[in-house]
């Protein structure tokens, strides 16, 4: 191990990584923890809000039900617009201090909360787009065999909508890995916060942030790669693996066609 900080950029970066590795590692773990929980909780918020935002209005409903549906759509619409229309950094500052007297939360929990509600707003739009992009014949077919709203959503619409929206959902996770960096404004000790601390000790801003950039890149690139693999698996048709039925299908499929 080197004992003195080299003067060149890459040498300096390597030295800093070796010497302050534990600090970077701690920051990386926090970043991943917040990004992961924020994305998962955000997905559930997004599912709920996205479904509410695509509730059908029927002229057969009574006035109260119609009113209720419109109210829910209005409120969820405001949520989505506010959280997509303001910077997460501003949301973090505002929510952390505004809600601290209520929740008495730690910075880490506040950070997770902010990323969750912010992601929820984006996920809501992703889910809503996924639902609306589905051919309306799917919905009609479900209705025509007697399924109610809930059954149609649960068994027909959502499985297909989520599958179609999976790339966008995964992308939110990648975005969150990077965007958790703004939580440094409320003092969450994620990767960016740790990087500034190290830079403060070493007085070598470029070298330190080169280390940070490489860590971020490794995180996002490996996540993207994993998501691509999952995507490829999901796009494979149901039961297309080697099985007796799929073989029979291949053998007899064309013959039947010719009748």
């Amino acid at each position: 191990m080197l004992t003195k900080l080299p003067s060149d950029l890459f040498g300096g970066a390597l030295y800093i990584l070796q010497k302050y590795g534990p600090l970077f590692w701690a920051g990386t773990k926090t970043t991943l923890l917040i990004a992961l929980t924020g994305t998962i909780i955000g997905l559930f918020i997004g599912l709920g809000v996205g479904i509410l935002r695509s509730l059908p209005e029927s002229s057969m409903d009574n006035k109260f039900k119609t009113f209720l549906i419109r109210l829910v759509k209005l409120v969820s619409g405001i949520y989505v617009e506010v959280f997509r229309g303001t910077p997460m950094m501003v949301q973090a500052m505002f929510l952390f201090y505004a809600l601290r007297p209520v929740f008495h939360w730690t910075k880490l929990v506040a950070g997770m909360f902010v990323v969750s509600v912010n992601t929820g707003a984006y996920m809501a739009e992703i889910v809503r787009a996924g639902i609306q992009s589905l051919d309306k014949g799917q919905n009609e077919a479900a209705r025509s065999i007697g399924m109610n709203n809930f059954q149609t959503m649960r068994h027909v619409v959502l499985p297909q909508a989520i599958r179609n929206a999976f790339p966008a959902i995964g992308n939110e996770f990648v975005v969150n890995i990077k965007d958790t960096s703004v939580l440094n404004v409320i003092g969450v000790t994620e990767l960016y916060f740790q990087t500034t601390s190290v830079a403060g000790i070493t007085y070598r801003v470029q070298d330190t942030f080169l280390v940070s950039a490489i860590i971020y890149l490794i995180l996002t690139y490996s996540t993207t790669t994993i998501l691509k693999i999952i995507e490829r698996k999901m796009n494979m048709p149901v039961q297309s693996g080697p099985s007796s039925t799929s073989t029979a299908f291949l053998v007899f499929g064309n013959k039947r066609e010719e009748r």
């Binding site: 051919d135 799917q138 077919a141 025509s144 027909v156």
Partner: peptide
């Protein structure tokens, strides 16, 4: 009342 559609509308998943 069973319905058969022009575009089949089978559940694709």
């Amino acid at each position: 009342v069973g319905m058969i559609f022009q575009s089949f509308n089978l559940f694709n998943h």
